[in-house]
């Protein structure tokens, strides 16, 4: 009986959360024009959402690419196909690892920071103060951050992928002795701009949208105490990561069937 009750409570809770999140997204989207008018607000946010995430993206991308180069080479060399290394590295990165890993890192670095920042603004009554000053916090605080996250994510994913391919080149060509020309040629012959690169970019755009949405919603929906904010931050990372992985499966099956 108790289990049933808590299941019911949980269901009601989640439905309400979804409802609030959807309404909140609607409010954000309605306020996008005001962000475009005052784009400076979004630029400042691109700094904290995008630029400050850059280091971890670049370092991770480089290492993922180097590992792909190493693992790919070890597998391919058994079939005498190490000339296809560039293709393997590039396809893995453009289609999957670039968008997905960037989105996960983005959720951990930028998403959690967004939630914490907005949650703290709520806890310290800054959002309430704005409302009392007749300034809509959604338009002044939330929407610029949303736009910044949405714009930053594809750029970060592209940087991750590009530096990853370079990392694969570094290991494959520099260390393991694959021919540099073959590395690039195999890649260029096998990677399709529309099927692979563009689909990867579409993925990163979708992930950016969802991760940023979750992050700003959790911050705005947080219980205005320090405990509430810390729990909201955790929820952002968990929910955003799960959403990215789930959506990746859906998008992949739609794109590459």
């Amino acid at each position: 009986m108790n289990a049933l009750q808590s299941l019911g409570g949980w269901t009601l809770d989640s439905v309400q959360r979804w409802g609030r999140a959807a309404v909140f997204l609607g409010q954000i989207l309605l306020n996008i024009p005001s962000v475009i008018v005052r784009f400076r607000l979004a630029v400042v946010q691109v700094f904290s959402v995008g630029v400050l995430t850059l280091i971890i993206i670049l370092v991770s991308g480089l290492f993922v690419g180097m590992v792909l180069g190493l693992q790919g080479y070890n597998t391919l060399v058994d079939f005498g196909a190490e000339s296809s290394l560039g293709l393997v590295v590039a396809l893995s990165l453009t289609r999957e690892l670039g968008p997905v890993l960037t989105a996960l890192l983005f959720a951990g670095r930028a998403g959690s920071a967004l939630t914490a920042e907005i949650g703290l603004m709520k806890a310290t009554e800054q959002l309430a103060a704005m409302e009392m000053m007749a300034v809509d916090p959604v338009s002044r605080v939330i929407a610029p951050r949303f736009v910044a996250g949405f714009l930053s994510m594809p750029l970060l994913a592209a940087l991750f992928t590009a530096i990853g391919i370079w990392g694969g080149h570094l290991v494959g060509v520099g260390v393991l002795g694959v021919d540099s020309g073959q590395y690039w040629t195999a890649m260029q012959n096998g990677v399709d701009v529309y099927d692979d690169v563009l689909n990867g970019v579409i993925k990163s755009v979708v992930f950016g949208f969802v991760v940023t949405w979750i992050a700003v919603f959790e911050g705005h929906d947080a219980t205005p105490t320090s405990e509430g904010v810390s729990r909201a931050t955790t929820r952002t990372v968990v929910n955003a990561s799960l959403a990215v992985l789930g959506l990746d499966f859906v998008l992949t099956s739609l794109m590459f069937d």
């Binding site: 400042v44 700094f47 594809p154 750029l155 592209a158 590009a162 260029q188 399709d192 990867g200 970019v201």
Partner: peptide, 30 residues
């Protein structure tokens, strides 16, 4: 801040360009 954001956007766009032209070979044989 604006300088950094500018650099970031340019770098991101260059990376997209690299993916399209150098990796995906948009200009060449597609």
């Amino acid at each position: 801040i604006e300088l950094w954001v500018g650099l970031f956007v340019v770098a991101g766009l260059v990376a997209l360009g690299v993916l399209a032209f150098k990796v995906g070979n948009l200009s060449g044989t597609d």
